[in-house]
Write a protein that binds this DNA or RNA. Structure first.
Lengths: 143, 143
DNA sequence: TCACAGTTTAGAATCGTTCTAAACTGTTGA
DNA sequence: TCAACAGTTTAGAACGATTCTAAACTGTGA
């Protein structure tokens, strides 16, 4: 691991710098979690799934820390929370404009690019309210 | 209460008949809950809020029964479950095609008529999957 | 290297929800 | 009308996800 990037910095060093930028002290736990989340392609995780994954990878991070970290990353804008299931929270490393397919049975999320989809005809919200975000969830089933 | 309707049946009698139609034995608890839910205009409730309401109305219905009943009504197609908040489940007496404004802070849902809103450009789901439903949640904030 | 604020942690606590098993009640058939 | 039974309700325990607590630990800047 810690493959050197074009910039000459190791991935870990990049992650460390990134965390510092966002005002997060780069502790071992945060760096390890951030590596899992951000080093490769976009991902959807739950606290539980991320905790399992990091544990299987041999790192020791408590579940409480996984929860704390997911929330801190979300506040910092590194993650986005996706609400599709009453039973558990998902976190998405893709924070750009996009929507989701959701396969409830398997707890699987699939991104839909924001450019692809468009929502028209949203009425003005009642007086005193402003639109914060429009979420589209396309619920799918195995055929 | 039990104001006579044009049909000559009391509301309670109508509710009772309705429940029977859906294969639900019209017990005291179900009739009372159905009255709160369906006698007036469309509503959004949580198990907790409905339990509070029926308790304040002087009826004794356990929270477990409220949960059971909400799920039975949902299965029967009398209610629709709305997933907008990781913390709790909402149930909507409007089962027709429509979407929602959601004011998280206050746990308030407001219907958006289905005709008003339109979602275009939903890609074909990955092979083996079919679209079940498209949910739109317009998250709003106090200005 | 020290001191301290920030962080992590195990375990307890909390919250919404579901389960359990015993008591209760519509309904049906005699 | 009534007994019998399946379906229903219930209190309370149990559950699973998440948050809290308070004590131990660790980056950081001097």
């Amino acid at each position: 691991m810690a493959k050197a990037s074009r910039s000459g910095k190791s991935l870990t060093a990049q992650t460390t710098a990134r965390l510092r930028q966002f005002g997060l002290r780069p502790t071992r736990q945060r760096v390890e979690l951030a590596s899992l989340l951000f080093d490769d392609c976009d991902r959807h995780v739950t606290a539980e799934s991320l905790h399992d994954e990091i544990t299987k990878a041999g790192a020791k991070v408590s579940l409480a820390t996984v929860y704390n970290t997911l929330h801190q990353f979300t506040e910092a804008g590194l993650l986005r929370q996706v609400i599709v299931d009453a039973a558990r929270s998902y976190f998405d490393t893709n924070t750009g404009d996009h929507q989701h397919f959701f396969l409830e049975k398997e707890g699987m999320l699939i991104d839909i690019p924001g450019e692809a989809i468009s929502v028209a005809g949203v009425p003005n919200p009642p007086p005193g309210l402003t639109v914060d975000r429009v979420d589209v969830v396309v619920r799918v089933k195995r055929a």
